[in-house]
């Protein structure tokens, strides 16, 4: 057993081999499955309901419906990428709405000043959350639940539990009802924010740091990243985005309701988790989140066109989430097994 075979020539340094010689179908399913769901809903309804579903107005309508959830969800994406949960975003959105309406109505703030104040104040709440998590070391799930509940209490204290009506709402309402080139303002806000947040997350040192902290906090720290600071900033981004959604919500309704934005919590989580199964292998990202929001909105819209009861929407949303994430998980497992 001591024969010596002639050694084959070794590859040179930096030898790079061709990849993707054989396509891995499970990987394709895992990454694009969620998009296929969206596309198939669109195709099916375009065929079934060409006159109501497949119209420009309806498309704009869907995007407009998506905008407010999308803003919360994209903000929430940051703490999720950094590996933290934020359960306070729904209450923060309500808070943003109440505060905006209150500042305009009760304190006579001009609209831009009111918006600016809301963004700063919610940002500060995020700062406090972040400090509780990083300095004291309270688990983010609990810290954000606690802060969220306190914010809810503040909402009640500030309003006495009644919606804050704006007497002369016209200027404020314009924010969400006006449009430019036929497209309502909130759609622009959503798209501009998406572009901005995408660049921040993918093309800045800060964004790299957020991803690194989520991937391996200790390795990130030893790479010179200020892990705690990054975590705090992600909570601030999530909070301010929720605040902004609150403002837009108040503008849409002409008033600030104590619990107006609470339901955004679940929608935003659903969208981000759905999005984590889009294009990537279970990582949260901005584009995925956006697709998650739009998919749900398209589904709701289709059901409304069919005249289905509201409860179908919830059945749909829940099923969709489990289906997309489930398929992604199974596909990833299969892809790994057959890599």
């Amino acid at each position: 057993m001591s024969e010596v075979t002639t050694p084959p020539q070794i590859a040179g340094p930096g030898h790079v081999e061709a990849s993707g010689r054989d396509l891995n179908w499970w990987r394709v399913v895992g990454r694009y499955g969620a998009i296929l769901v969206l596309l198939s809903i669109i195709v099916v309804f375009t065929v079934l309901e060409p006159s109501t579903f497949a119209t420009k107005d309806n498309a704009i309508n869907i995007l407009n419906q998506s905008a407010l959830v999308a803003i919360v969800a994209m903000g929430l994406t940051f703490p999720l990428v950094a590996g933290e949960f934020d359960l306070s975003v729904g209450y923060q959105a309500s808070f943003g709405g109440v505060l905006a309406a209150g500042l305009i109505q009760k304190s006579g703030f001009p609209i831009p000043a009111a918006i600016g104040t809301v963004l700063v104040v919610t940002g500060l709440v995020g700062l406090i959350t972040g400090l509780i998590v990083t300095r004291i070391g309270v688990n983010a799930l609990i810290a954000t639940l606690g802060v969220g509940t306190i914010v809810l209490g503040v909402n009640y204290a500030y309003t006495g539990g009644l919606p804050v009506q704006i007497d002369d709402p016209e200027g404020f309402i314009k924010l969400t009802f006006n449009s430019l080139f036929g497209i309502p303002y909130p759609v622009y806000v959503m798209l501009i924010l998406a572009a901005l947040l995408w660049v921040v997350l993918n093309r800045t040192s800060f964004g790299q740091s957020v991803q690194a902290v989520g991937g391996n906090a200790e390795a990130a720290r030893l790479s010179g990243i200020r892990v705690d600071r990054v975590r705090v900033l992600t909570f601030m981004i999530a909070a301010s985005c929720a605040g902004l959604t609150g403002v837009l919500l108040a503008s849409r309704t002409g008033s600030g309701a104590v619990d107006g934005g609470d339901s955004y919590l679940l929608s935003a989580f659903a969208a981000t988790f759905f999005g984590s199964a889009v294009l990537r292998d279970g990582q949260f990202h901005i584009v995925g989140t956006l697709i998650g929001v739009v998919t749900v909105a398209v589904g709701f819209n289709a059901m409304a066109i069919l005249g289905l009861d509201t409860y179908y929407q919830y059945l749909f949303q829940g099923t969709l989430l489990i289906f997309a994430v489930g398929v992604g998980t199974v596909a990833r497992r299969q892809a790994a097994a057959r890599a």
Binding site: Q208, Q211, A212, G215, N216, E218, A219, A220, L222, D281, Q283
Partner: peptide, 12 residues
């Protein structure tokens, strides 16, 4: 545990 983000690319 201390040096790498295993799920990220070599370039990252």
């Amino acid at each position: 545990s201390q040096g790498l983000l295993l799920k990220e690319s070599l370039a990252f």
